[in-house]
Simulated assay, not measured.
Amino acid sequence: MKLDPSFIWTAFVQILSVIPTTLLITAVSVVCGLVIGTAAALIRTFRVPVLSEVAAAYVIFIRGTPMITHLLLIYFGLSLGVDALSKQFGWAFRSSSIPMIAFAFIAFSITAGAYASEVIRSGLLAVNRGQLEAAHSIGMTTGQALRRIVVPQAFAASLPNVSNLVVGILHASSLAFTVSVVEVTAKAQIVASTNWKFFDAYLAAALIYWGLTLLIERASALVEKRINIYYRGGVA
């Protein structure tokens, strides 16, 4: 086997066109996952009756099963559910009308939520419990104290792990090709199929993932630096 630098460059250029799709899947999944994860973490941290057991079961199940399984369960399960409801109520809408990328959004958001839950929960546990009590002593409600004092500090403490979560979802977005979403890995496969130079095309895809990962890590380091300046009392 001999590498073809010109084809690697050609593949690289062609794959660049689908980077927005990969970044969109990553961004939507991480944002939705953080919302889900924060809710689950708060429920478990404050031991809300019934809901804390449901949240714990959710986290254990999702973390204990592969991400591709979540994607396939959502893809087939949601399709069956939508079609069954449409038939039951006489709706014209069918699962075939759902954009394929929507299945990736839902599946990856659910997965990200379980991992984000543990990340945020560790951050919540790192915040001194006395701060919540102090907030109550000056008349703040629990909701106000969480929003203004506890959760911001928890996110700050969790930022390195949140960065790892973003990178993990970025890499996992490559699984979206299993439901016909053309992202970086799928595009590399399409480009490679023109002359069977799969190694060269996947090498180009690997370089793109590597570059995106470096950008995420750099952005995370800058945000972490600004947050550290803020909590030291400096000027951001």
Score class of each variant (00 low, 15 high):
172 A>F: 12
126 A>L: 07
104 A>K: 02
109 S>D: 12
170 L>K: 07
176 A>R: 11
144 Q>W: 03
125 L>M: 07
170 L>G: 07
181 V>D: 10
104 A>R: 02
154 A>F: 04
114 A>H: 02
115 Y>W: 04
178 T>K: 13
134 A>S: 14
152 P>C: 05
114 A>F: 06
160 P>W: 15
115 Y>T: 01
122 S>P: 00
133 E>T: 07
143 G>S: 08
150 V>I: 09
172 A>Q: 10
154 A>E: 02
191 V>Y: 03
130 G>H: 08
148 R>H: 15
145 A>R: 10
144 Q>A: 14
145 A>Q: 10
170 L>H: 08
139 G>D: 11
106 I>W: 03
162 V>P: 05
123 G>Y: 02
145 A>C: 11
187 K>G: 04
134 A>W: 12
153 Q>H: 06
184 V>N: 06
137 S>N: 09
164 N>Y: 11
108 F>K: 02
167 V>I: 15
122 S>Q: 00
130 G>T: 10
138 I>A: 11
166 V>W: 05
169 I>V: 15
180 S>D: 12
175 L>Y: 11
134 A>L: 13
122 S>D: 00
135 A>W: 13
125 L>W: 00
194 T>F: 00
150 V>R: 03
149 I>G: 04
144 Q>E: 15
157 A>S: 14
161 N>Q: 08
121 R>F: 01
146 L>H: 01
185 T>K: 00
119 V>G: 01
183 E>Y: 11
108 F>Y: 13
183 E>D: 12
